[in-house]
Design a protein around this nucleic acid. Structure first.
Lengths: 226, 226
DNA sequence: GTTTTAAAAAGTGTCGACAATTATGGCGTT
DNA sequence: AACGCCATAATTGTCGACACTTTTTAAAAC
């Protein structure tokens, strides 16, 4: 499935399942950002013991979705504009480098797969009502594939394993369906071509601009609102 | 203290203390890389219950120092050349960006502090026998300060909170006292000047070259050994 | 002798209870 | 009425025991 994370393995233990449930709940705001987490209450809700719940909380903490203070408890992270911009800065650096590495390390098969995916996005875009699909899951798909294409486990872990949960949380809660759909599609195309040409330097530059453009788009929006 | 991490708060709970002990043990190789972790055995060694130990293991997992598989157990991460190079790639991207942000966001006081630190390193270097100090803790100090100077919490968390434990582990276990001491000192100086000039673009480029040079130094060494 | 199967041992996951710490609320004082 | 203090309640941290999985061991079948 598109929104499933490439790094997470199937949830076998109950703590895993509760983690996934809470993950979705936090991402889509059912568990409110900034709210305090009551261990006894949640354990009762999910019908599990506190030990199991705490195991799930530890994984949420690994994704930086909750923060814990000793002897005080856990809170869901706040969603602030400043925090969002911070994430964009990190993404610009990491995904830019991932793109450079992808240009060096992607297999021909992976490149073919990416081109096929983009073609599919293009037809979905033509359908017009498919635009929202493209923006949400399609965009994530594209970025995932580039990151995986870097073949760098550290990059993959940081980006897919933790940062992207936060990205999805912000997208959900800020309702970000930016009007950059068409533009973003063209940018994706050029990035793939740079990767296919094995031009790491260009690929990195294009990806950085692509992400920086999204960030500046948000900065502009904020400036207008004030 | 130099090697203490700026992001970790004082260890109050026993799980915290065990985490710190195990952290040091893993970093310096007392607990061998790649070895399996027996919960019952370690719990007995540290004279704590398995619950508390597992809490400590969760924090080690957050730093990517151990890896867990469901119903199987934990292993200390392996130290491979490939893994080391992967980390350098991530550092080049993240610390480069951190340096750019530092040029934008550092306060004048922080810049003064950095210059003072570098002056101290210079005198230590002049002492000759201080060289090892400069290389080990001094180098980490410099990089820490730049990262903190970015004022970007996400960057700080990823770099100081998790990646740098791995870096220290590799330094310890591979015994890396690279002969780049003098060169590195000059590079540090130029980076600080770029930050002081508020030239983010140059600062990022210099930091990336600085880290890339270290990586290439290792690649060269490896090539010679083979 | 090798492979398959089954039982036993060891290890991890989960639970409920107790201990230690922090938050709450009422009381008295200023 | 506002502030500080103490007792109580609630929450988090830790413990030991049990349930379930995986691994090991040994026997049985081929």
């Amino acid at each position: 499935m598109a929104l499933d994370n490439p790094t997470t393995q199937a949830a076998v233990t109950t703590a895993d399942k509760v983690f996934e449930q809470m993950l979705h709940a936090i991402v889509n705001g059912t568990i409110k950002a900034g709210s305090k987490i009551s261990e006894p209450e949640l354990a009762k809700n999910y019908q599990i013991s506190r030990s199991t719940l705490r195991e799930a909380l530890n994984r949420l903490e690994k994704c930086h979705l909750i923060e814990r203070k000793a002897n005080v408890g856990s809170r869901v992270v706040e969603c602030s504009i400043a925090g969002l911009l911070e994430i964009y800065v990190v993404r610009e650096a990491l995904e830019g480098m991932a793109c450079r590495q992808a240009a060096m390390n992607m297999t021909e098969d992976e490149i073919i797969e990416m081109r096929a995916m983009l073609k599919q996005h293009a037809s979905a875009k033509a359908l017009r009502d498919g635009i929202s699909y493209y923006q949400e899951e399609g965009d994530l798909d594209f970025h995932y594939k580039v990151i995986l294409g870097s073949h760098n486990q550290q990059l993959i872990n940081i980006l897919c394993g933790q940062l992207y949960h936060l990205v999805r949380m912000y997208r959900c809660q800020f309702g970000m369906n930016s009007p950059r759909a068409t533009k973003a599609f063209d940018e994706h195309s050029r990035i793939i071509e740079a990767i296919a040409d094995r031009d790491g330097e260009l690929a990195e530059m294009l990806m950085r601009r692509h992400i920086a453009a999204s960030r500046q788009n948000i900065e502009k929006k904020i400036a207008l609102q004030q």
